[in-house]
Amino acid sequence: MTGRDGRDEWSVGCRDLAGRRRDLTVFVGTDDKIVLVAPPGEAAVLGPLEVGRLRAALRDAVVTMAAPAPRTGT
């Protein structure tokens, strides 16, 4: 998925400790590092399905990071 600022980012649903719906965000940083953003000031509680989605998002981020940059010009 592509975020608002044009970077690749993935969102994974979760809950906080109070049971409210929240999101974890995964994206590739400018220094070729994977960035995981948790709900502000909260712990993220993941069930088995959300763990699978987080794993898939992390895998997709690594694949995106490893893909060669598109060539421009001739």
Score class of each variant (00 low, 15 high):
residue 1 M to N: 14
residue 1 M to T: 08
residue 2 T to I: 13
residue 2 T to A: 05
residue 2 T to Y: 15
residue 3 G to C: 01
residue 6 G to C: 08
residue 7 R to H: 15
residue 7 R to W: 04
residue 7 R to F: 09
residue 8 D to I: 08
residue 10 W to G: 00
residue 11 S to C: 07
residue 12 V to N: 01
residue 13 G to K: 10
residue 13 G to W: 02
residue 15 R to C: 07
residue 16 D to M: 08
residue 17 L to H: 11
residue 17 L to D: 12
residue 19 G to Y: 14
residue 19 G to F: 14
residue 20 R to S: 08
residue 21 R to N: 13
residue 21 R to L: 07
residue 21 R to S: 10
residue 21 R to K: 15
residue 22 R to M: 14
residue 22 R to I: 00
residue 23 D to T: 07
residue 24 L to W: 04
residue 24 L to M: 07
residue 25 T to Y: 02
residue 26 V to R: 05
residue 26 V to T: 02
residue 26 V to D: 00
residue 27 F to E: 07
residue 27 F to C: 10
residue 28 V to F: 07
residue 29 G to K: 06
residue 29 G to S: 10
residue 29 G to N: 04
residue 29 G to C: 06
residue 30 T to N: 12
residue 30 T to I: 08
residue 31 D to F: 00
residue 31 D to N: 15
residue 32 D to I: 04
residue 33 K to C: 12
residue 34 I to Q: 10
residue 35 V to D: 01
residue 35 V to L: 02
residue 35 V to A: 04
residue 36 L to F: 01
residue 38 A to V: 11
residue 38 A to L: 14
residue 38 A to W: 01
residue 39 P to E: 03
residue 39 P to S: 06
residue 40 P to C: 08
residue 40 P to G: 09
residue 41 G to Y: 02
residue 42 E to K: 08
residue 42 E to Y: 13
residue 42 E to D: 12
residue 42 E to H: 15
residue 42 E to V: 06
residue 43 A to D: 11
residue 44 A to H: 07
residue 46 L to S: 03
residue 46 L to N: 05
residue 48 P to E: 14
residue 48 P to G: 09
residue 48 P to K: 15
residue 48 P to C: 06
residue 49 L to V: 06
residue 49 L to N: 08
residue 51 V to N: 03
residue 52 G to C: 01
residue 52 G to N: 10
residue 53 R to D: 02
residue 54 L to F: 00
residue 54 L to K: 01
residue 54 L to D: 02
residue 54 L to E: 01
residue 54 L to W: 03
residue 55 R to K: 12
residue 55 R to D: 06
residue 55 R to E: 09
residue 56 A to S: 15
residue 57 A to Q: 02
residue 59 R to F: 12
residue 59 R to C: 05
residue 61 A to F: 07
residue 61 A to L: 03
residue 62 V to G: 09
residue 62 V to L: 12
residue 63 V to F: 10
residue 63 V to N: 10
residue 63 V to M: 11
residue 64 T to H: 08
residue 65 M to T: 04
residue 66 A to R: 14
residue 67 A to Q: 10
residue 67 A to T: 15
residue 67 A to H: 09
residue 67 A to S: 15
residue 68 P to S: 05
residue 69 A to F: 03
residue 69 A to Q: 03
residue 69 A to L: 12
residue 69 A to I: 03
residue 70 P to W: 04
residue 70 P to E: 11
residue 71 R to D: 08
residue 72 T to Q: 06
residue 72 T to S: 08
residue 72 T to E: 08
residue 73 G to K: 09
residue 74 T to M: 09
residue 74 T to A: 13
